[in-house]
Amino acid sequence: MADRDTTKAPTAGALALADVEPVPGVPKPDPILVVDKVKRSFGGLTAVNVDHLELQRGAITSLIGPNGAGKTTFFNLMTGFDRPDTGTWHFDGHDLANVSAYKVARYGMVRTFQLTKALTRLSVMENMKLGATGQRGERILASLIPGIWKAQEAEIEERAEELLVRFKMDHMRDELGGELSGGQRKLLEMARALMVEPSMVMLDEPMAGVNPALTQSLLEHVKDLPSFDMTVLFVEHDMDVVMDISDWVVVMAQGRIIAEGPPAAVAANEEVIDAYIGKGHGDESRFTPTPLAGAPVSAAVEEVAPPSADEGAEDLADGGADLDGPAEGAGPADEQPGGRA
């Protein structure tokens, strides 16, 4: 798949983290997100149980782990889309416990979703413009008088246009969101998140379901983000991608952080390999509840994708397999580009 550029220059983020010891919960020199004792369980199943985690400002951190490790739940908790049972976390000085999702976004922490949320019946340009914050025309009374918001709207459109050019999507500005291919939607969602002008971007499996041609382009955009003063946390399955672009890797299994460190150190970590292999073989039953037994299936199974269980293990084992992420639920629309791309 991607050619691994082994001779790349170390990024600012990697330099800052060079002296940090690779143990779970280790403090970082300049953390933007600090998580303490965040716990969330569904029924009897603990989905997330993070004792302490810090994320370095300006670095690209990837979050990996087998299916059902609690990565998406962790994302939901951090961004206010779910509430933990206990725990606190601070983002850029803001206490985010009990803060609504929309306020989290306004503080500058913006997320994307594993199942892309391109707004189907809005055009690409409208999708983009929606991302801008502080719009005067978004207040109901002001919206009635175009004079109040027309000038700002023009500025926003200009900014959106620039981003679309950067993401090479400017030729499809009038397409509807629903007419894009799966990969284009991922691109659009990322570009739209940047319209918020965030200080931290949280990407949930940005490469899942994207065809190889677009993957490279997406990767480049992610790698670019720190140069725009943005911190990145992303969930990824493909170890190749993780090794390529991250400054730091955090590994989750069964809701806990079991390891963190620079990519190379993590790849060599025994516990990490165990977690992946264990998931694929010895411990499978725990991740595949049998509904016929009649026990209520916990909501946490939402992360359990249809059983392509070995993907993580294979990734680690041969380091080069080209694997799809979990299948997107949206169906055919994701496979084929829209009618007249």
């Binding site: 509840p289 049998t290 509904p291 016929l292 009649g294 299936v297 199974v301 359990v304």
Partner: peptide, 25 residues
């Protein structure tokens, strides 16, 4: 619902449709 195969299947599909489908119901 509690004892028969079809009853259990109904509850399973109610509980989590995708999961039930992928386990062969």
């Amino acid at each position: 619902l509690q004892r028969t195969r079809i009853g259990k299947a109904m509850r399973a599909v109610s509980d989590n449709r995708d999961l039930a489908e992928s386990s062969g119901i």
